[in-house]
Simulated assay, not measured.
Amino acid sequence: MRFETSVDIDAAAERVWRVMTDVARWPEFTPTMTTVEPLGDGPLSLGGRVRIKQPGLPPMVWQVTEFTEGASFAWRATGGGVTTVGTHVLTPGESGVSVLLGIDQSGPLAPVMGLLLGGRTRRFVRTEAESLRRRCESGDAV
């Protein structure tokens, strides 16, 4: 199962990248994140782990599996017979950037989870994209 959405953001690519990778601050601007706790020191990077609690879902530990500075990262969490991969891709344009957010779910229970939580997953991904846009286009500190 795959869910994805994209959003155009009227802000510098560097700002969008900073906001997108400062994951501990996500709960400040998106209601889909209750807590985001990095499990290590330093900025988000390949191999880094983060514990995320979202409304109505159990906490999950995500590990960064792909990381291209200034451009993209992906992370993976496994639980309940489902492996979930979240992708975050930033593409600079003529006036701002486009950000693509995606969720891929696989495993023996992925079809069942898709039926049960697919609507929530779509709403969460869309809300996260719109929240990122609002944060990056605002004057709020990063």
Rank of each mutant, 00 (worst) to 15 (best):
W17L: 07
V142F: 13
V36R: 02
F124M: 11
G96V: 04
L116M: 09
A77S: 11
A12Y: 10
P92A: 04
R122K: 13
A77D: 06
L100N: 14
A71P: 03
V142N: 11
T127M: 07
V125F: 01
V61H: 01
T35N: 10
P55W: 04
P43K: 10
S6H: 15
E128M: 06
A74H: 15
V7T: 10
T87V: 11
A129Q: 05
D41I: 01
Q63A: 13
V82T: 05
S72D: 07
G139A: 14
R25Q: 13
H88Q: 12
V125D: 01
A77Y: 04
G47A: 07
G81H: 01
P58G: 07
E14N: 09
P59S: 10
T30F: 01
L116I: 06
E137Q: 11
D140E: 15
M33H: 12
F67S: 04
G48N: 04
A24R: 13
V16N: 05
L116A: 03
L90T: 02
S98G: 12
V89A: 13
T91R: 14
I9T: 00
T78S: 14
F3V: 14
G70W: 04
L46G: 08
S45P: 05
T68D: 15
G40I: 06
D104E: 12
T91D: 13
P31V: 09
V99C: 05
V64E: 08
R122I: 06
D22Y: 12
G80K: 07
I52V: 15
W75D: 15
G79P: 03
R120A: 09
G80F: 08
P111S: 00
